[in-house]
Design a protein around this nucleic acid. Structure first.
Lengths: 228, 228
DNA sequence: CCAATACTTCGATTATTGTCGAAGGATGAA
DNA sequence: TTCATCCTTCGACAATAATCGAAGTATTGG
């Protein structure tokens, strides 16, 4: 029996139910403590601690200590991306269509993907920003146009501030429920934050579901129209 | 202990070394027999058979029987995509940079990803086709322009024939070694096939490495220029 | 038809790994 | 300082799953 490729090692880390539950909980982009993650997984704190150590060593998580509390977040966008991909496979978007439950429909409509908006609403945002030429493809990158920067500033997003930070401003993130791109990067995160500030959308504290109010959805559709 | 999300089930399937070896072997896009896959994994035929049954039931593989032979291929692009993502994580592109071995460098340069060209050369192809407006983003899709169709026909790719088939013509596939898109879909596959016909590039029979001859690389660079 | 080849299924064995109770170390608040 | 809380580590146990020999079924070629 040959030694497996490294993908076996990474996949095996995700392939344990307790660890998968914890990773899924972290898809919201929040960092959670060992105790919180133990609860998410439904195991004792000592078991959770052991699992988290493995995920850390495997490069999937990033720990941060604050006094007696130790917080874990996903290590990177890439981890989130792979988890999204696995969700797509698990949902049978590969080639068999599974029955969709109510929660699934909500997640498909709008959900948090590592702090930015994903799902139908997420891809609508991206498509509209492209269509209105606020974003454009520049060969290998997505860049914010001048018109886009002005638009964002009018929407009270501090573009200069975002540009000063280390995080990339715009990134494409392939949305596995929609099979198209949604906007990641600090701008994507800023948009979601703004939708919350305006009470257009509300993040479910327990899941990744993002719920748009009727008023918020109307405002969103007005501001981010797409030809569909 | 809570029951795990479905991603645990899918990931666990990939997380076994024997199964991971088989999936990796199938990334070339070829379909292999049970015996061949047993050899790839370094297990007996009966063990391989058992594993393949699980991968089939899990929706990751698609079997096809031909007389006494049973061939397995990856179920879809999506499966290939997730495997690529895991490779990126395993390579530490997440946040830790692993030492790159000789084989890694070759795979990064040019490799087969489910029958189309990936790696540096793959993203170059995509970027150039976009830059030359042979391909363009149409909101959610990549479409071949008229100019692009003409270009492809001049390159002796039967666009009408491809359009008649069920497979999508153009698809973006996120390239994990390059972190940008490369061209998937039937057009992507046709391009790789053509490069082989012209002896510009040669597929390694044992691995996914695609090697461009000096002459081929020169011709490729000439036909698919990018501003880099 | 028979022999060879390809694959499937069964069952026993073994190794691995998740789990939790117990114990201990670190931190913060009273 | 003491106590409560958070987390880590250790060790024992139990469950799971990969593995292969054996046996059986299906297909093909001579």
């Amino acid at each position: 029996m040959k030694e497996g490729p490294d993908i076996a090692r990474v996949a095996a880390l995700i392939g344990d139910p307790a660890r998968a539950n914890m990773l899924t909980a972290l898809m919201s982009g929040k960092a959670l403590t060992v105790s919180e993650l133990a609860e998410e997984a439904g195991v004792t704190i000592q078991t959770a601690s052991s699992h988290l150590s493995k995920l850390d060593e495997g490069g999937l998580l990033r720990p941060r200590k604050q006094g007696r509390h130790k917080y874990f977040g996903l290590a990177s966008d890439d981890v989130a991306h792979v988890l999204e991909g696995l969700m797509g496979l698990a949902a049978g978007s590969g080639h068999l269509r599974k029955r969709i439950g109510p929660r699934d429909a909500e997640l498909r409509q709008a959900r948090v993907c590592y702090n930015h908006l994903a799902g139908d609403k997420g891809t609508q945002l991206f498509d509209s920003l492209i269509a209105q030429e606020y974003l454009r493809h520049d060969g290998e990158h997505i860049v914010l146009t001048k018109a886009g920067a002005a638009f964002a500033e009018r929407f009270e997003i501090d573009i200069d501030g975002l540009r000063k930070a280390r995080a990339p401003l715009c990134r494409e993130c392939l949305d596995w429920s929609e099979r198209r791109s949604h906007l990641a990067g600090s701008l994507g995160r800023a948009f979601l934050g703004r939708f919350e500030e305006l009470s257009w959308a509300k993040r479910d504290q327990k899941t990744r579901v993002v719920t748009f109010s009727a008023k918020g959805a109307k405002a969103f559709d007005g501001m981010f129209p797409v030809s569909r």
